[in-house]
Design a protein around this nucleic acid. Structure first.
Lengths: 232, 232
DNA sequence: CCTAAACGATGTAATTTTGCATCTTTTTTG
DNA sequence: CAAAAAAGATGCAAAATTACATCGTTTAGG
C-alpha cells in the first residue's frame, strides 16, 4: 500500500518527453477547440517555417519531417539544434517574446500544425493538468537542449562531428542516411568551420569509420564513433 | 479604444524576466501557502546548494548572493551559467526529472528559499494565471540561457572571456569587482582551457583593457571589451 | 605557524583549427 | 542544354589553442 503511493508520487514527476502527452490532459471539448484553431501547413525541404522578427501568433508543432532551429549571434547564424518530428518548434521561446528571436527551416518535406497561441494560453489558464504537463515537457526539453548544446561546445571537432552524425542516425533511425544539410550548416551546428567539417569527414572516411559519397552517409563503426564522441 | 485593446494584447505576451513577477498572480492565501512550505537556508561561498543525483523535492529560489549551475558532460564538469540573485536555480530542469542532473554551487554567501515542489505543482494546477506567468518566465529564461551558451561557444577565447568579464561586471553592477571563481572555473564556463584563460587575461592586462591583481578586476576599456565580445 | 597542496603566471613546443588558394563536382538558372 | 554559381575536396601556411614544464604565490589543514 505504501509502495503504491510511492509509485504514484514517482509517476507525478516522471519525464514528459513527448509533446503529444501534454494533449492527453485536455478534455474532448478542449481538443476540439485546439483542432478548430489549428491550421496544417506543408513545407518543402529548405523552406523557412518561421523567421526571426515575426510576431508569434502560433505555437508550431512539427507533425512530420525534420527542421532546424537557428538563432543569431552578433549577426552570424548559429544553429541551436535539430527538431525531430512530433515535437514543438521553439516552444521554449515562443511564449516569452512577442517578436520571435529565432528562425526555423525545414530540412525535409515537413507538415506543420500551427496552434493559435491565444487558444493555448486560454487552455493553460483553465486546465491545470494541461498546464502542469506542459511545464514538465518544456522543462524536459530545455534540459535536453542545454545538455546537447553544451556537449557540442565542450568537444573537439572529432567529438562534435561524431555526435552530430549519430544524431542524424537517430533521427533517421538508421546508420545509412542522406545528410539533410550542407557542410557549412553542419559547421554552424557544431560551431566549427566548414573546412574543419570537410577535413574531419574525410578523415573519418580514411579511418573506416564511415562511408560517404556526397551527402550519402553510412556509419560503419558505431562503437568507435560513440567512443570518439565520449572522449573528444 | 482600438489602441487600448492592442496594448492590452501586447502586454499579454510581454516578457516575464523576473521570477518575482510570477508570484504576483497568487492570492494572499496562496502566497501564505508558499511561505508556509518554504524554508530559507544560508550557504557560504563555495558550498554546494544542490548536487546532481539528488531527488528534486524543492524548487530553489536564490534570494541573495550568486551561484553557478553545473552539468556533467561525459564525466567532465561544464558550467551552464551564472545564477544572479532573485532568480530560480535550475527551475528549467527541476520539473522534468525526479533525479536532478545538474549541480549548483554558491559563488558568494547566499540565501536560498526552498519551495516545496508539491505545493508549487498544486498552485500551477489550481491557478491558471500563475501557471501562465510561470510558463512565460521559463520560456524567457530558456531563451536567455540558449542564447548565452551559444554565444560563448561560437566565439574565440578573446570574445568568450570578454563576455564573461562583462557578465561579472553586470552581476556586481560595477566595473570593479572580485572574481568569485578560479581560473579553472572560468575555463569551464567558456569552454576553454585553464591556461588559455590565464594567458588571455594577461594579454588583456598588457593591452590596457583591464587591471588585475589576483582575483581583483577593474575593467578599464569597456567599449573595446564590448567590441571584442561582438566580433570575436 | 608551518608544510603541503592548490592556484596562478610564463614560456615553449605540440596540436588543433582556421583561412586561403585551387580544383573538381554538383546544382541552379536562364 | 550550357554557363554560372554554389558546394565539396585537398593541401598548405598561418593562427589559435592546448599541453607540459617550471616557478612564485596563495590557501588550507594539521
Amino acid at each position: 500500500m505504501a509502495e503504491s503511493i510511492y509509485l504514484k508520487k514517482e509517476n507525478k514527476i516522471s519525464e514528459i518527453n513527448s509533446a503529444e502527452q501534454c494533449l492527453l490532459a485536455l478534455s474532448d471539448q478542449e481538443k476540439e477547440e485546439v483542432l478548430k484553431s489549428s491550421v496544417e501547413v506543408d513545407f518543402q525541404k529548405g523552406e523557412t517555417i518561421i523567421k526571426k522578427g515575426f510576431v508569434a501568433s502560433s505555437i508550431i508543432y512539427l507533425k512530420q519531417g525534420l527542421a532546424k532551429l537557428d538563432i543569431e549571434i552578433d549577426g552570424k547564424p548559429a544553429t541551436v539544434g535539430l527538431i525531430p518530428e512530433k515535437s514543438f518548434v521553439g516552444i521554449i521561446c515562443t511564449f516569452a517574446n512577442r517578436n520571435l528571436n529565432f528562425s526555423s527551416v525545414a530540412l525535409e518535406k515537413s507538415r506543420v500544425v500551427l496552434i493559435d497561441i491565444q487558444v493555448l494560453e486560454k487552455l493553460i489558464r483553465q486546465n491545470g493538468d494541461f498546464a502542469f504537463l506542459l511545464i514538465k515537457h518544456m522543462s524536459w526539453l530545455t534540459n535536453q537542449i542545454v545538455h546537447h548544446i553544451t556537449r557540442y561546445s565542450h568537444k573537439n571537432i572529432d567529438g562534435s562531428l561524431s555526435i552530430l552524425l549519430l544524431d542524424f542516425a537517430a533521427v533517421y533511425k538508421s546508420d545509412i542516411f542522406t545528410l539533410p544539410v550542407k557542410r557549412k550548416e553542419m559547421a554552424n551546428i557544431i560551431g566549427y568551420s566548414k573546412e574543419s567539417v570537410i577535413n574531419t569527414l574525410s578523415k573519418f572516411k580514411r579511418d573506416g569509420l564511415i562511408e560517404m559519397a556526397g551527402r550519402e552517409v553510412k556509419i560503419l563503426n558505431r562503437e568507435m564513433m560513440q567512443h570518439i564522441s565520449d572522449l573528444g
